[in-house]
Design a binder for these strands. Sequence first.
RNA 1: GUGGGCGUAGUUCAGCCUGGCAGAACACUUGACUGUGGCUCAAGACGUCGCGGGUUCAAAUCCCGUCGCCCACCCCA
Length: 420
Amino acid sequence: MDYKAIKGTKDILPGESYVWQDIENKARGVFSSFGYEEIRTPVIEETALFIKSVGENTDIVSKEMFSFVDRGERNISLRPEGTAPVVRAYIENNLDKISQFQKLYYMGPMFRAERPQAGRMRQFHQIGVEAIGSTHPALDAEVIRLLAAILDSVGIKDYSLKLNNLGCADDKKKLSGALKEALSDKEKALCDDCKKRVKLNPLRVLDCKNENCKTIIRGSFKAAKFLCEDCDAHFKEVLKYLDSLNIKYTIDPYIVRGLDYYTKTVFEVTHGSLGSQDAIGAGGRYDNLTSSMGGPAVGACGFALGLDRIMLALEKTSGEKAQKPRLDVFISTLGENACSKAFTILDALRSSGVSGDMDYEKKSLKAQMRTADRLGARFVLIIGEDELARGEAVLRNMATKEQASVKFEELVNTIKERAK
RNA sequence: GUGGGCGUAGUUCAGCCUGGCAGAACACUUGACUGUGGCUCAAGACGUCGCGGGUUCAAAUCCCGUCGCCCACCCCA
């Protein structure tokens, strides 16, 4: 029997996991400087949560969720995105009563049953943010600034930011209705997908990639004129705030987003190195979500970054990646007696905060040195029969090749001193 | 759901067209240097040629089937 990882999932191996950690650590640093706190929600939720929030007729819910019925006859899904669970947790735990304004972040795996492809896995990883409790346009700008700050800190360059204003729920309804009406007689000319969209989710025709659909739909339609005064003013304020921070963006009136909960500001960040799956982050405002889920009527704004794609973009642009962490000291031993002595020395070193390792395979000294080199050890401690007899070990500096004899009892202090 | 490509050593791949000993590079182990890393040189180990069937004296190679993976459409992070 040979076992394989499930299609669309993959292992993150020791050779690369430190790169992931590095990005996560940098993101955490940025989050705390912006005053965001981590929230960790379960990977499984009630299926109904996503149907209600993301939308029944979105692709994500209608054909991409990993859903199942458990032994207690409950309908459960692996989370396909992070916003709905966080909002659920916000409401369920009365976070608004603790502080009216919650700035939350999360990082972890999400699951969508799509056909795997470059930059698209069935288990993928997101770093996301939900700022819940304000309708102020400065929040939109802060969230976008935060996204940019994280990309900067992890070394992503040359990304482009696109913005759009979807308007409030009323505006969206008006636009949907108008689209439906305007396209009813042109339906035959549209692609098969758009025919369905017109019926189920008319807004989505706006970002159809089919050239024919584009000319039909965009030629006869100015989405912006369906915006109410409030929404128009809000968006202009957001842009003003962004300008005040010198954030570069372009406005794309056809960004719609595939999740129904968005209102007003929506945005996408893409990276040119990635080919067709080029979105590395996206988000927007969702002012009706908390109330529609039974919580308080408060404004909110958030985004999610695709960690896997950030990793790809870093590889493609040979941006500086995290260095593998080095080992302070590797102990090479010759003989069984030296091995058992080294075992206790190693433990003492580790207890005092020095990183160290040794091997137990009775390899030649040469092979042990090679291992030490591969591990990036800064020092090697050599212990053989001679050293045992003298109560000393040879301490070798791998970079300078300098060697010195050090008494066993002085080893911890000497190495701590030199490894600084 | 729809199209295209690919499955051969740990990895990246050549060999397939035109059937005839299972290959290269890198990585790994050992040695040259009896107890000292990177560089060099040498030797060694590593294979169900995805799987099943067929044709043939002979199949990695040709034929049929099957499974898996990748890429793209779509959608999305």
